[in-house]
Amino acid sequence: MDISEDLRYTEDHEWAMADDDLCTVGITDHAQEVLGDIVFVELPAVGTRVEAGKAFGVVESVKAVSDVYAPVSGVVEEINEELPDNPEKINTSPYDDGWMIKIRADNIAQLDDLMDAEEYEEYIENDDD
């Protein structure tokens, strides 16, 4: 299990990385492992407004459909255009090539409420059924 040190994590298994008030979002290594082979990704259009805790997109494996939730409120500034045609990038590189969207955050301090790597590791251990 790979948990990147310098990211923030949601209870829905998204990761968030802040660069000033620009927040990059993806799903965690744990999430992609639970989902299995990812075959479909739907992302919002650039300029869409997203709200913290609300679904902004969909990730589907062969068997499962999973909503993806925004870790912060703001406006979608960029999307990973490669993903719809290469959804397997989320499996092979969840924290890097598999990033999903970048959100221009209203208040980047919202990320402080999320888990850090250590807390997330503990969270998924307890979450493990």
């Binding site: 299995g36 082979d37 494996s61 062969v62 068997k63 499996n91």
Partner: peptide, 9 residues
């Protein structure tokens, strides 16, 4: 339901 190779393989 699947082995580590994954359902597509």
């Amino acid at each position: 339901v699947t082995y580590p190779t994954g359902v597509i393989t």
